[in-house]
């Protein structure tokens, strides 16, 4: 499904930062991959490179066989197939919940009104927020906003969902409602790449865990292996600090 080969990403902000150094990863269809690591380790950059919100400087990325970094690739088509959920929700504040979810279906997928309305309502129901459909995002709690953001991404019928620290900006009591939606999604067989600090989620839902540090993948394994018998010293140190 996702095939990342030797990608590099360097920022100049203004000093040189090597955000990704020779990263290679393969993610199969239906797989839930959780990426963990200390801040500044390149997790988010990796995720953002997948749909070219950031452009990798070197290497190859294939999503469903499409060369993401090729100049002739229509990136908008790729992005429509790759849903993304952000740490800060990024809902459109001037649109109601319903409009947030239906807008891209309308103008990107060009679905007829009846169809996109049905899809919107069923998704809002799925994330448990259909009673707030006429409300503006500012009137929702963080957890509700993030669930709308998930519905918005799902509305495009993506083949992959990318989650960039979806619970980091939430109040503690709202984390579970978002994680529940994500677990439900994983159960439905969605391919998911999740950057998170929620170790419980990683342990419970992930098929594989990727640990990154300083722009490189340090260790990859099943949650079982990862949390119980980590091999690298860096991984051990990280787990010791957070658990």
């Amino acid at each position: 499904m996702i095939d990342v080969k030797n990608i590099y990403k360097t920022f100049f902000v203004p000093h040189r930062v090597d955000a990704l150094v020779n990263v290679t990863a393969k993610i199969k269809a239906g797989e839930v991959v959780v990426i963990i690591g200390p801040s500044g380790s390149g997790k988010s950059t990796f995720l953002r490179c997948l749909n070219r919100l950031d452009t990798a400087n070197k290497g190859n990325i294939f999503i469903d066989g499409i060369d993401v970094l090729h100049p002739s690739t229509n990136i908008n088509l790729v992005r429509a197939e790759v849903g993304m959920v952000f740490q800060s929700f990024n809902l459109f504040p001037h649109k109601t919940v319903k409009e947030n979810v239906s807008l891209a279906q309308q103008i990107v997928r060009k679905r007829p009104q009846k169809e996109y309305q049905e899809i919107t309502m069923s998704l809002l129901k799925k994330v448990g927020i259909e009673d707030k459909k006429e409300v503006y995002p500012s009137q929702l709690s963080g957890g509700q906003q993030q669930r709308v953001a998930i519905a918005r991404a799902l509305a495009m019928n993506p083949k992959v969902m990318l989650f960039d620290e979806p619970t980091s900006a939430l109040d503690p009591e709202m984390i579970s409602e978002v994680l529940d939606v994500m677990k439900e999604l994983a159960k439905d067989g969605m391919t998911m790449v999740v950057v998170t600090h929620e170790m419980g989620f990683a342990r419970e839902v992930a098929d594989r865990v990727i640990f990154m540090d300083q722009g490189s993948i340090v260790e990859v394994g099943t949650p079982e292996h990862f949390f119980k018998t980590p091999e690298h010293a860096r991984t051990k140190l990280f787990l010791k600090q957070i658990l």
Binding site: N51, L53, N76, L77, R79, A80, E81, V82, G83, M84, F86, S88, N90, L91, F92, A104, I107, V108, A149, R152, A153, M156
Partner: peptide, 11 residues
């Protein structure tokens, strides 16, 4: 983030 969210939807 608004640009990123809209572009990530394929707009």
């Amino acid at each position: 983030g608004q640009t990123e969210a809209s572009r990530s939807l394929g707009m």
